[in-house]
C-alpha cells in the first residue's frame, strides 16, 4: 500500500499517518470533489450531444462498456482454451488411428481483445522507447562533450524534433516493406513500422537534454578532472554521467510521453495492432456502443501514460544522487 501511495505521489502520508490525517483528508477530498464535478458535467454535457451513433456516452455508459470489454476478454480466453483442448483431442485421436500421421498444431487466431491490444501497445512503446534511448543517450553525450559536433548537429535536431509521426509514417512503412523482407520474420512488419516511428519521434528530447546536461557540467568539476588527469573513460563515468543524470531523466520522461502519444497515432493510421487500432476499428464499426468503447480506450490511454511517467519518476528517484531535489 505504501509503495502504491509513493508511486502516485502521496508518500508524505506514510511517514506520520495520525498527524497528517486531516491533511490526508484535504489532499484526497479536494481531488475527489474535482473528479465528482467533472463526472457531473460530463454526464450533463454528454446527454445534449447527439451523434449519428447515438448520444455521446456519459460516465455510466462508459462504465457499462468497460465491464463489457472485460467480459469479452474473458469469453475470448475461454474460447481459446477450448480451441486448444479440441485441437489436442483431435490430434490424439488421429495418432491413435495412425501413429505415423503428421499432426498439425495451429495457433489460435481469434480476434484480439481490448486487453490484448493494450499489451501489444505497451510492448511496442517500451521497445521503441528503449531503442530511442540507446541511440539518444550515447549520441547526446558525444554531442554534449564536443561543441563542434553540437554546432553541427543542433540545426538537424531542431529540424527533426517537431516533425509529427504522421509525416514519418508513410516513409517508414514503405522503407520497412522494402527492406524488411524475410520468409520467416521474427517480428511482424506492423510492429517494426510502429517501433521505428516511435523511436524516430521520441529520441529528440533525450538527445537534446542529455547533450545540454553534458555540456553544462560545472567548470569546477571539469577542472578537478583535469587536475586529476582522469582519462577519457573515467571522466565520462565518474564526472559526466552522474552530473548529467537529472537532465537525462528530464529528457527520458519527455521522450516516453511522446513515444506513447506517437504510438497511438501510428497504430491508428497504419492499422498496426494496438490500442490505436482498437479505437479506429470501433470508429469504423459504428455500432451504438462504439463511442462508449472508444471513451474507455481514451481513459485507459491516459491512465497508462500517467503510470508510465510515474515509473520513470520512480526510476529517477532510485538513480538520482541528489536526494534533496524535489522530483515530481
Amino acid at each position: 500500500m505504501s509503495k502504491i501511495l509513493a508511486t502516485i505521489g502521496l508518500s508524505h502520508f506514510i511517514e506520520n499517518p495520525k498527524a497528517n490525517f486531516s491533511q490526508l483528508g484535504k489532499s484526497l477530498l479536494i481531488p475527489l470533489i474535482g473528479l465528482l464535478v467533472f463526472l457531473f458535467i460530463w454526464e450533463i454535457g454528454a446527454k445534449s450531444v447527439h451523434t449519428s451513433l447515438g448520444t455521446f456516452p456519459g460516465p455510466a455508459a462508459v462504465y457499462q462498456q468497460s465491464i463489457t470489454l472485460i467480459e469479452e476478454h474473458q469469453a475470448e480466453r475461454v474460447k481459446e482454451v477450448k480451441f486448444h483442448e479440441r485441437q489436442e483431442l483431435r490430434n490424439a485421436k488421429k495418432l491413435e488411428k495412425n501413429p505415423d500421421a503428421t499432426v498439425k498444431v495451429r495457433p489460435y487466431t481469434g480476434k484480439p481483445t481490448f486487453f490484448d491490444q493494450i499489451l501489444t501497445s505497451l510492448i511496442t512503446v517500451l521497445a521503441g522507447f528503449i531503442i530511442a534511448s540507446l541511440i539518444a543517450i550515447p549520441a547526446g553525450i558525444l554531442i554534449g562533450l564536443n561543441s563542434t559536433l553540437y554546432s553541427a548537429f543542433n540545426p538537424l535536431i531542431q529540424l527533426f524534433k517537431p516533425v509529427s509521426p504522421l509525416a514519418w509514417l508513410p516513409l517508414v512503412t514503405m522503407v520497412v516493406s522494402a527492406v524488411y523482407v524475410s520468409k520467416d520474420p521474427m517480428f511482424a512488419k506492423s510492429f517494426i513500422t510502429s517501433l521505428i516511428t516511435v523511436s524516430l519521434c521520441s529520441l529528440w528530447p533525450t538527445l537534446l537534454n542529455t547533450a545540454v546536461g553534458v555540456s553544462s557540467i560545472s567548470k569546477d568539476l571539469q577542472n578537478v578532472s583535469q587536475v586529476l588527469r582522469l582519462n577519457w573513460l573515467t571522466h565520462i563515468i565518474k564526472i559526466v554521467l552522474p552530473s548529467s543524470i537529472p537532465m537525462m531523466f528530464t529528457g527520458l520522461r519527455l521522450s516516453l510521453g511522446i513515444a506513447w502519444m506517437v504510438l497511438i497515432a501510428a497504430e491508428m493510421l497504419a492499422q498496426n495492432p494496438g490500442l490505436g487500432k482498437f479505437v479506429w476499428d470501433e470508429f469504423q464499426n459504428g455500432s451504438s456502443n462504439s463511442l462508449g468503447r472508444i471513451m474507455v480506450a481514451v481513459l485507459v490511454i491516459g491512465l497508462i501514460g500517467f503510470l508510465l511517467d510515474r515509473c520513470m519518476l520512480f526510476l529517477q528517484r532510485k538513480m538520482s544522487w541528489d536526494k534533496t531535489a524535489i522530483l515530481r
Binding site: S218, D220, L221, N223, V224, V227, L228, R229, K238, I239, P242, S243, W321, D322
Partner: peptide
Amino acid sequence: PERAVVFQNHSLLPW
C-alpha cells in the same frame, strides 16, 4: 596532481 588545487567552492563531486 603534483600541483593540486583547492577550489573556491570546494568542487567535490556531489554524488
